[in-house]
Amino acid sequence: MTRAALLLLIGLLALAGCAAAPQVVVAPPPPAPPLLRQTIPDSALRCAAEPAGGKVRSDRQAARYILALKAAGRDCRAKLGFARDLIAHEGEQGP
C-alpha cells in the first residue's frame, strides 16, 4: 500500500470517529387521565316530605307524627351526608 493510500485510509477512519453521536429521543410522558366529575343523583338531593301535621287527637297519633317527622329528618341528614362526602372527596383517585 502506498503512503498516500495509507494516509487516506487513516484520514477516513479519523473522520468516521468524529461522526455525530446518535441522538436520543425521549418520548413525552403520557397525558394524565381526565378527572371524573362526580354527579350527585337527584334522589340524594331530595329529602322525604315532612309529614302533615293536622289535628292530633290522641297520644298514639302524636307518637306516629313524631316518629314520621324523625324519619324524614334522618332521611334528609343521610342524603346530605352522602352529597357532602361526594363533594369532599371529589378529585381523589380511587384504587
Rank of each mutant, 00 (worst) to 15 (best):
L36Q: 11
L69A: 12
A72W: 00
A21W: 13
I87S: 04
V56L: 15
A78T: 13
L67G: 02
P33S: 07
G73E: 15
V56H: 02
G17S: 13
A78G: 04
G11H: 02
G81D: 10
K79G: 00
C47G: 03
P30Y: 02
C18F: 13
E50I: 03
V26S: 09
G53M: 10
G94I: 12
T2P: 01
A4N: 05
L67V: 15
V26Y: 08
L67K: 08
A16C: 15
T2W: 04
L36Y: 10
A5M: 09
E92S: 14
C18Q: 14
I10Q: 04
L7H: 06
G91E: 12
A71V: 10
A71M: 14
R84C: 03
A5R: 11
I40C: 05
R77F: 06
A72G: 05
A78C: 03
C47Y: 00
L6G: 01
A19D: 09
L36D: 08
Q23G: 05
A62Q: 09
L13I: 14
A48Q: 07
C47D: 00
A52H: 08
D75N: 15
L8C: 03
P29V: 06
Q38S: 08
A21R: 11
D75V: 07
H89P: 00
A20C: 09
A72F: 02
L67F: 12
Y65P: 00
I40H: 06
P30S: 04
G94S: 09
V56F: 14
A14K: 05
F82Q: 01
R46G: 02
L36M: 09
P41Y: 07
